[in-house]
Design a protein around this nucleic acid. Sequence first.
DNA 1: TCAGTTTAGTTGAACTCTCAAGTTCTTGGG
DNA 2: CCCAAGAACTTGAGAGTTCAACTAAACTGA
Lengths: 149, 149
Amino acid sequence: MTRWLDDDEQHAWRSFLAASQVIQEELDRQLQRDSGMPHAYYAVLVRLSEAPERRMRMSELAAGVNSSQSRLSHAIARLEERGWVRRLPCPADRRVSWASLTDAGHDVLAAAAPGHVEAVRRCLFDRLTPEQTGQLAAICAAVLGERRS
Amino acid sequence: MTRWLDDDEQHAWRSFLAASQVIQEELDRQLQRDSGMPHAYYAVLVRLSEAPERRMRMSELAAGVNSSQSRLSHAIARLEERGWVRRLPCPADRRVSWASLTDAGHDVLAAAAPGHVEAVRRCLFDRLTPEQTGQLAAICAAVLGERRS
DNA sequence: TCAGTTTAGTTGAACTCTCAAGTTCTTGGG
DNA sequence: CCCAAGAACTTGAGAGTTCAACTAAACTGA
């Protein structure tokens, strides 16, 4: 009844799991060590820094970093404690909050970025040919495509 | 100074992050919902079930599931509470513990496996061509290869 | 109008993971 | 033989994530 994985799939699956874990852990460790934040928080700062006026609605921001609303809410609370983000009420719809990157947050991000990019290169792109980089993008696009529910 | 990511790399990187997060979360949710355990614990049970006599030293097991010793120690403590794993002292070297899969643990694993494989297919292999499966394996092998430190 | 539904976001508890420190045991050189 | 160094594992505290429940505000249609 169950369609088990064949040998190729089994191998690809285990390699994928190991590789994605190794990358996640390496990035988390690097950012925690050098900038005192987990990768998820870094992603929030990046996304905010790219938004017009460096601010976004909580739910947009959550979608933009693949996070649940709850997780983002906790994360923003932490980032607010550190003075890197501020919450602003939205006059047009009072259910909505804006998250806004502060100047201090922007500075922290600018300081963290070079080391982070270096880590990304070291654990991913330095190990791939340009052709493989393209293949990876296509594979990930297929995984993300037409996602239901 | 910093070698920033070019457009292709930027795109590949963000796709990869999103895809691997989506897959991780989907699997975690499925296993938690249907079998009451996180994916990391499932991996421990799988690895143990494949070992001779269904038991392994803690440090081998940790390496086998890409886990730190500390994380594994906590995980085995939980799994032991549920009666799915037992710890056995090693007579030859008294620093060593064996983790051993119980019959109950084996049954739980057997019950969890079909739903898990189905989820893996749904979120990964059903979306890839066989060629892409091979490419993914090669890419992940490159990421994992010759890892120092 | 207003009751019911949907949307936005927050909160608290339970759980997992990380990091640093600690315990117990083995090993290797003097 | 003995002690310092290293190895195997555990522990506890702190931090992040998840889930379900909750508040508050905005729609919807009868």
